[in-house]
Nucleic acid binder design. Structure first.
Lengths: 157, 157
DNA sequence: CCTTATTTGCTAGCTAAGCTAGCTATCCGG
DNA sequence: CCGGATAGCTAGCTTAGCTAGCAAATAAGG
């Protein structure tokens, strides 16, 4: 992540610093999710699927099993099993696609949304508390940065 | 970090925005790593272990199998198998601990470091390119924010 | 020193979750 | 209407996690 290239200017130093912070941050997020997987008694992939569904729901994008497979980079067969687990646990429902008889649309249950929010609320609260210490202008900079980096490293979504 | 009490709505909106961006960002990072796991023909946990080793190495902190187990939240038995895989693949070496006859110290091989950097360089390059579009002051804000959020959600490291 | 409790990493055997191959049903372009 | 492509599912194999339990080394108490 950080190359050992010497930081000659202040800007170079700042770039190096932010990349290091990005690494620490993604590590912390990783550990937060793996902690939650223990709390919710789920495996990492199933939890990642739920996260994806929440994100896509917020964007009002319908999600198919195929989408999940692509997003998580697992096979469609594994996705079928994953959806069996999530369905059995009452987290999601498979609905028929209105126009395509082969396809399904995966929908979160209200219970799942609630449970997810419940387990997330401490972490989200901690993050919000940090965020509230910054001005709206600073937050706009951070938001912009994060979104740009996101689309730079992951062009798909 | 002005606490603009007057502009409560704008600040709330900014907080909401940054939290959404954080979520999108961690999702993008996740997908970057899962993409890399395909490229390097490794599973997610093994890759996470390598990332941990790189981070700890940079901080000059020695890593024991027990540390890996705690960090990845897997059992020590699974860690033994993980280390068997990484050792067989030539990524790490188990060295004896200088003072504790029971303990081991896990050390990355130079080849592993090189391979890791090789596979990361595109993503790091993309991130650096984004970062370079910001002033040192803005990057300082972003860095500060990321580090604070990191320690808020994951006090351990 | 000697005994006991704790810690570290490993082994054995079980379970869970991913993969490939292949199937059916459906959609779409000619 | 028909042949190829696509969506999702099933079956069977393989991998990687878990629990239980072990030996060796350390730490603590007398």
């Amino acid at each position: 992540m950080a190359e050992t290239r010497g930081a000659e200017t202040a800007q170079d130093a700042a770039v190096w610093g932010v990349l290091t912070a990005v690494r620490a941050f993604s590590d912390a997020m990783d550990r937060m999710y793996s902690g939650m997987k223990g709390d919710m008694e789920m495996n990492a992939t199933d939890l990642a699927a739920l996260r994806m569904l929440i994100i896509r729901e917020q964007r009002e994008q319908p999600v198919s099993p195929h989408d999940i497979a692509r997003h998580l980079r697992i096979s469609t067969a594994s996705t079928t099993k994953l959806l069996d687990r999530l369905t059995d646990a009452g987290h999601v429902v498979r609905r028929p696609h209105p126009r395509d008889g082969r396809a399904r649309i995966i929908v979160l249950t209200e219970r799942s949304r609630r449970e997810f929010r419940m387990h997330f609320k401490d972490s989200v609260g901690a993050m919000r508390q940090v965020a509230q210490q910054y001005s709206a202008e600073d937050l706009a900079i951070v938001t912009d940065f994060l979104l740009r980096v996101s689309s730079a490293i992951d062009p798909e979504p």
